[in-house]
Design a protein around this nucleic acid. Structure first.
Length: 672
DNA sequence: GGTAACTGGGTTTTT
DNA sequence: CCCAGTTACC
């Protein structure tokens, strides 16, 4: 069937990329230019050309992208069964697979645990106390800040000292103590076989740079394809270079104008410099956009930052439709009202809610909108922001599961112990010492731990420890997960007032875990690829339902909708005020705006509230036609239609600058 | 000495 | 609205 062939409907540039031979290939793909399709076609072409699928590695940015590509490759490949065998996943997921397979080589116990960022922060906080740095005379940086410094240093291979000087100057007085704490953090993780996200990449890189093992591991694959290369950091670059030292069999796809992970140590220069590093590389530019109407691309091209990057002009054959709308509204609640009006109008005209999306810079920007949607009974699902994994009960469950295999996992023990009444941080620390988690026969010490606990909690604690032992002896994944849940049930019931909903979450988690080969792998992968929305685990029933999508722009990367509403486009919110002070920060915000605008197929609306709490800037009648966000300069505005939302009752609108001051009564008469 | 309950300040983006 | 620091209580 010709239709399902991988080359069906590819344009010249896409075809060139798909059929390129074995030399290094760089695909610069503007937004909506069929990047995924090209990559998938290339994979299919390789397989049809006889490349063994098990020797193809496809590295993507998210698990969702990996799954989608693997499924699509299987669908258009002549050898469908073959396509299922290829290696695919995020850098972190593949790293986990390889590092856990070679744990002993790296001096780790095979029962290793993956720390999510919150666990890592807990560990840093613990060390902060141990080093006597908490609550001293002068404030010591918080665990989260410390981890930011640490992670940035690791991901950019820049000495922590320099990172502190350049990006965290207010922490400089504590530099020595911070470096000391980092040393403890590293050793503590090693002795307990704990790996944070950065360690996974470091572990993989270490395996690859080993003179004996490295070349053998790299030789496992003939082709390595990397998606979203503008968002890789230095370690990931090192990994890729070790995998394909000469560049043969390497394909990277990216767009420097869509680099939005600088805060994580990514740098789009890695993409831009690759052609210099690999002179043999062929570069293919994709500029034909298949997603959006040309009206929308006029705006996209106007805001696309070009300085120092690839000059690329998106063009579309899709004419017609309307120009992007710039909606100037009174304040955030007017914005919420107008968005819901527009969404419902479109729905009235037959547009499904699912074809529409609301995008924002920060997860909390949709707070008011969510209230409005709930009040007007519009179903929605939110991506990004509050993550399922951050919910305390889920963390409790995952920590408990980790303890089944890795008894050294201090952070997990700490969490489980503190679930008991009367056990706080300090008591947990003593109990941990009584447990001697280093011993292989931890169970023999259980009675001592119970004895050391406060009297009122001994029964419960004994029950927990017994349940843990019992769970370890269960033969199947399902039975083990079930036992853990039964162990937690009474503890969570007394701890959380809303325990019913929380336990229901865990029921879903337990049934999802049952399909995994091992429970440890299940939680590790859950940690690395958290469900994108809280409803993700709910499964199929949601697929038939119609709902509006709310998403951070970061989480919306790679997705598209017919109608897109971008809210809170005002200096201080978007661009974020955190980024306003630095040029690089501001450019990254602008790239983010480019990403947001290019998610829309047919209709795009940009909302700019003129009056924001804490953002004093824009509300002034005399300047009411000035752009409220620096993204919206004259060039950008020239591509849009401006909609003014005048408050219904003009008298109710008092310009802040001329507002009459009314003193609050002092109620003095009441105090005499 | 350590836990639990209270209070007040601050809030980006994610593998 | 969540977290850190503080106070009151065991």
């Amino acid at each position: 069937m010709f239709d399902s062939r991988w080359d069906a409907g590819l344009d010249d540039a896409q075809l060139a990329a798909a059929t390129h031979g074995d030399g290094p290939l760089i695909v610069v793909a503007g937004a909506g230019t069929g990047k995924t399709r090209t990559l998938v076609s290339r994979v299919a072409a390789l397989i049809d050309r006889g490349v063994d699928p098990e020797r193809i590695l496809l590295l993507t940015f998210t698990r969702r992208a990996a799954d989608e590509m693997l499924a699509r490759a299987a669908a258009i490949c002549d050898r469908r069964d073959a396509a299922r065998k290829l290696w695919g996943g995020t850098f972190h997921a593949v790293a986990y697979r390889l590092v856990s397979a070679h744990a002993e080589t790296l001096g780790l116990s095979p029962a290793l645990s993956v720390l999510d960022p919150a666990d890592a922060r807990d560990l840093v906080d613990l060390l902060r106390h141990e080093h006597g740095l908490a609550g001293g005379a002068q404030r010591f940086p918080r665990g989260e800040t410390l981890l930011d410094i640490y992670s940035r240093s690791v991901n950019t291979t820049q000495p922590a000292r320099d990172v502190i000087t350049e990006l965290f100057p207010w922490c400089e007085p504590h530099t020595a103590a911070i470096l000391d704490l980092f040393r403890s953090y590293v050793t503590r993780k090693r002795t307990q076989s704990l790996l944070d996200f950065d360690d996974l990449l470091l572990g993989w890189r270490a395996l690859l740079t080993d003179p004996g093992l490295g070349p053998a591991m790299a030789a496992r694959w003939d082709h390595v394809l990397v998606d979203e290369y503008q968002d890789v950091n230095q370690i990931q670059v090192d990994i890729v270079r070790q995998l394909r030292p000469e560049g043969a069999g390497l394909t990277v796809v990216g767009d420097d104008a869509q680099a939005v992970y600088g805060f994580r140590g990514a740098d789009s220069r890695h993409l831009l410099e690759l052609s210099a590093d690999l002179p043999a590389a062929r570069t293919v530019c994709l500029e034909q956009n298949f997603r959006s109407r040309q009206q929308i691309l006029h705006l996209a091209n106007a805001v696309r930052p070009s300085a120092g990057g690839q000059r690329l002009q998106l063009r579309s054959d899709r004419d017609g439709g309307s120009r992007p709308r710039l909606v100037r509204c009174h304040d955030a609640s007017a914005e919420a009202r107008l968005v819901v009006d527009a969404v419902l109008d479109a729905a009235e005209e037959g547009r499904a809610l699912k074809d529409q999306a609301v995008l924002m810079r920060a997860a909390h920007h949709s707070d008011l909108l969510e209230i409005e949607l709930t009040a007007r009974r519009v179903p929605f699902v939110k991506f990004g922001g509050l993550k399922f994994l951050e919910a305390a009960h889920v963390k409790d469950f995952i920590a408990s599961v980790r303890l089944l295999d890795n008894r050294l996992d201090e952070i997990a023990w700490f969490r489980l112990l503190r679930l008991h009444d009367g056990i706080g941080p300090a008591k947990a620390r003593t109990l941990l010492a009584a447990l001697g988690p280093g011993e292989p026969d931890t169970e023999l010490r259980h009675p001592f731990v119970v004895a050391a606990a406060p009297a009122r909690t001994r029964t419960a604690l004994a029950g927990t420890l017994d349940a843990l032992t019992a769970a370890r002896q269960q033969p199947t994944v399902a039975a083990r997960a079930e036992r853990i849940l039964e162990m937690l049930r009474p503890l969570l019931t007394v701890r959380y007032p809303d325990h019913a909903a929380r336990l229901a979450d865990l029921d879903r988690l337990v049934s999802a875990a049952a399909n995994s080969p091992t429970l440890a792998d299940y939680v590790a992968n859950l940690t690395l690829d958290p469900p994108a929305s809280t409803s993700d685990l709910a499964g199929p029933p949601h697929l038939e339902e119609d709902f509006l999508v709310l998403s951070t722009i970061h989480s919306a990367k790679g997705l598209e909708w017919n109608c897109v509403h971008v809210i809170h486009v005002i200096d201080g919110a978007f661009p974020s005020d955190m980024a306003l002070s630095t040029g690089t920060g501001l450019t990254e915000e602008q790239r983010l705006f480019y990403v947001a605008a290019t998610r829309a197929r047919d209709e795009l609306s940009i909302y700019t509230p003129l009056r924001m709490p804490h953002h004093r800037r824009a509300y002034d009648d005399k300047h009411s036609y000035a752009p409220a966000s620096r993204f919206l300069d004259d060039t950008a505005i020239a591509t849009m239609d401006i909609h003014e939302d005048r408050p219904r009752n003009a008298a109710a609108r008092i310009p802040a600058s001329t507002a009459v001051r009314i003193a609050l009564p002092t109620l003095d008469e009441l105090w005499t």
